[in-house]
Amino acid sequence: MIKIRGLHHHFNIGKKGDQRQVPVLKGVTLEVSEGEIVAILGKSGSGKSTLLHILAGFMLPEAGSVMVNGKETSVLKEAEQADFRLQNFGFIFQNFQLMPGLSAFENVELPLKIKGMDEKERKLKVENLLQKVGLQEVAGHYPNELSGGQQQRVSIARALITDAPIILADEPTGSLDSETEKEILLLIQSLNKKLGLTFVIITHDEEVATVADRQYRLHDGELVKGEQRHAI
């Protein structure tokens, strides 16, 4: 499903004219199969977010190849990347990234609106999904009226609404307390089992990585294989 080969990337650090290059990814290679949960662990600044951004098409790698569902995404133009994301990826962010002016229902509905889906069809789909993630009661609430766990559930629902086969999660429990964290991780596991979704989770939290089928650790720009899944 996802094949990353020899990914290289660096950042320029320092003032203009006095910049130095800091490599963040040094030939990263990774394969993720359909229906797998893969966790990428790493300290702050280890390059794990850069890897996710390249995978999502938010930025282009300096070298290497990213194949998703048999398509080389690192050569796509901006508009093609956007279209590819809409069809293939769902996103869960650390700070939820919900639209403050939209209700929970409208936030989940947003990707379908972008997709151009008919209103009736859209409404039905969003209602069903909100019920699945236990948010039907707060569908009309705005993000500032929801708890952290509820906001993350809305964010997960938004990631799932387009039926994208791959969910990219960047520190999905980073803003949550330990109780809510467990709740969200259970939801991720359940969605993986029930819907066969593929998850790539970026985290610094060892606990979060326990839901993964496979764990990798990014260290000095290189990806090292870690432990296997064990129960939460």
């Binding site: 938010f58 508009a79 956007a82 279209d83 994301r85 809409l86 639209m99 972008i114």
Partner: peptide, 14 residues
Amino acid sequence: REIGVMKAVGAQPK
């Protein structure tokens, strides 16, 4: 930030 979210979830620049 909202524009960023829209682009992230698949909104085309146009």
